[in-house]
Amino acid sequence: MKKVFGLVAAIGLMASPLTYANTTITVSGSTSVTNVMEVLAETYSKETGINVEVQGTGSSAGVRAAKDGTSMIGMASREVKSSEVTADTEIIVMARDGIAVTVNNSNPVKNLTKDQIAKIYRGETKNWKEVGGENKPIVVVTRDTASGTRGAFEDILNLKRKIKDMKVSTITPTAQVGNGNGMVKTIVANNTFAIGYISLGSVDASLSAVAVEGVAATDANIVAGKYQIARPFVLLVKKDVAKEARDFIAYLLSEPAQKIVVAEGYIPVK
């Protein structure tokens, strides 16, 4: 997915219209971060006339793009390990987000423990009646392996194990795979007995977010440290990245941009 903002809006909006005429700021990575980044990029382009190209390619691809310099700015929706980047890569948190565990609106299950969720995703708990629901098989929905949401979800719920010094996922191989928050939402919203996980900022009336350990998935509970399935929205840049990219990052951390972060359903860092 690729969107380019600000190709036409330059004239009359910049003090020096030709300053960045041939410059495009390239941003790629997490599809979760892409949702809010597209809004921020469009706003920035309208105000400055600078082109910002945003691509949702997945967190792992975003980390690689920043490391390799194929994008000015990489995006990840999980913690980034120092082993994944080079010494000249900076990691900047631009917002925070919860991962909502979601069920169909008709599902009577409204609360699950972390252990219950983990057992469902490992395929150990197979029927809703085992967690207080109907006597129906659980349809497990997960994200693709490049997803930062999946990586964070696996880390938080210990859904990985080591095999020959390599960490591999323990999510049941029978799980349906949704490529992005939108696809997971569609599957869960249309299957009475499905369970999935999506960015908290993507939750809407089409499905329900369950409480985890009795704590509702809300911004306030994440800020307070009560809701435990949460992760950062991370930007990655080379230390010698172009000034235009630096200026855009400064904008993303500014008060006006952080207000947009809030309006889009995410948690600001300022």
Rank of each mutant, 00 (worst) to 15 (best):
Ile117Leu: 11
Thr125Tyr: 10
Tyr121Gly: 00
Leu157Ala: 01
Ser169Ile: 05
Glu130Gln: 15
Glu134Leu: 12
Val168Leu: 07
Ile120Ser: 13
Val131Ala: 11
Ala146Gln: 14
Lys136Ala: 11
Ile156Glu: 03
Lys164Ser: 10
Val139Ser: 07
Ser147Tyr: 02
Pro137Lys: 15
Thr170Cys: 03
Thr125Met: 14
Ala152Arg: 06
Val131Cys: 11
Ile163Lys: 09
Asn158Met: 12
Ile156Ala: 04
Met166Phe: 04
Gly123Ser: 06
Phe153Cys: 01
Glu124Arg: 07
Ala152Pro: 03
Asp115Lys: 11
Gly148Thr: 08
Gly151Met: 13
Val139Thr: 13
Asp115Glu: 13
Ala152Phe: 04
Val139Asn: 13
Ala152Asp: 04
Asn158Ala: 15
Ile120Phe: 11
Arg161Cys: 04
Ile138Thr: 07
Lys164Ile: 01
Lys162Ala: 05
Asp144Asn: 14
Val140Lys: 13
Arg150Ser: 01
Trp128Ala: 08
Asn135Arg: 04
Arg150Met: 03
Thr145Phe: 08
Glu130Thr: 15
Thr170Arg: 02
Lys119Pro: 06
Leu157His: 04
Leu157Thr: 03
Tyr121Asn: 01
Lys167Leu: 14
Lys164Thr: 06
Lys119Ser: 10
Val139Ala: 07
Leu159Asn: 04
Glu130Tyr: 11
Gly148Ala: 06
Glu154Trp: 05
Tyr121Asp: 00
Thr170Asp: 03
Phe153Lys: 02
Ala146Tyr: 08
Arg150Ala: 02
Thr145Ile: 13
Glu130Asp: 15
Gly133His: 10
Pro173Lys: 06
Leu159His: 05
Asn127Val: 15
Arg122Phe: 05
